[in-house]
Computed example of a mutant assay.
Amino acid sequence: MPRTPAANAERISDLLGAKSFWRIRTIEVTGSTNEDLADLARQGAGSGEVLIAEHQAAGRGRFERVWQSPPGSSISTSVLLRPRREPFVWGWLSLLIGLAVTDGLRALGGGDRVQLKWPNDALIDGKKVCGILSEVVTTEWGNAAICGWGINVSLDESELPVPQATSLLLAGLPTDKDLVSAAVLGRLGDLFARWDAGEDLSAEYAAGCATVGRSVRVHLDAESPDSPSVTGQAVGIGEHGELLVELGDRVEAFAAGDVVHLR
């Protein structure tokens, strides 16, 4: 499958505008953009660093799962953040990235076909288009958050890692990597600034999350689809990003777990 041109840091910065929070660098190939920025954080780099790679040779997802795609078919992005807020609320960062990715793709023409499944699964027509991994790094200058995501851009059906995945190309959405990167980074910059200033974004996240308001099954062990589960109605998002599920006569908060949307 022919690949779209590589991401261009200067063009992305121009699209974001002179007041952008981000300092962007693009590279052709690396082991892991998260690992690269973790090293940068340990050297004292500040909040706002962005690294975008055309290919990761050792990309990772949650639970140490391998996240790889053919060279040039995806955009792998990591950002370095040093939040001022207490570390116990940093779990919000993964949720905000999920919201930034889905809102960015909606703005590029995806509309209601793009959905966010709690906590941070970006879906197009019900299929996953993006993987997200956030990590905390300890440095001499305090803790830093390294937040990474990989968006399937131009994979064809034969290249998809699983049948439940898709790409921007297959979904008929723009495959211009600069436009996609700018759309996501622009939204994330706004969300992070407001959250870091102490704003409660739970209602805004809930409004953009397709999980809220529907019947769900929550598997308590996210790594195992055969783990114990509960079924109920997702009714909201807690102050720390938990999914609030109505179970009969009570509402329970789930900080982790794998969610299945029920029809």
Rank of each mutant, 00 (worst) to 15 (best):
H219F: 10
V50G: 00
N8W: 01
D249N: 15
D176F: 04
A206K: 01
K177T: 07
A253F: 03
V251G: 10
G59N: 01
E10G: 00
A9P: 00
D176A: 01
A41S: 07
P71G: 01
V218R: 12
C147I: 11
Q43G: 14
A255C: 11
G61S: 06
R217F: 04
A144K: 02
A57F: 08
R60K: 04
I52H: 01
N120G: 06
D156W: 08
W195M: 07
A58I: 06
S74E: 11
I27F: 05
Y205Q: 11
H261Q: 11
P228L: 13
G59T: 02
W67F: 07
T211A: 03
I97K: 03
V79D: 03
I52F: 02
Q43N: 15
C209P: 09
E223K: 14
A183R: 00
L16V: 09
E246T: 09
H55A: 10
F88D: 15
G186E: 10
R23A: 13
W90Q: 08
N8V: 09
W141D: 15
T33R: 01
A57H: 03
L188P: 08
P2D: 15
D103S: 13
P163M: 00
A18I: 14
D125P: 06
A38S: 15
L80S: 00
A57K: 12
R82A: 08
G208W: 00
A9M: 03
D226S: 15
G241Y: 04
T166N: 04
E49N: 02
I52L: 05
T231A: 12
I151R: 00
S74Q: 02
S73N: 08
T139F: 02
V129H: 09
F21P: 14
D258R: 10
A207I: 02
T4S: 08
L123E: 09
P70H: 08
R214M: 14
Q164V: 09
T175Y: 04
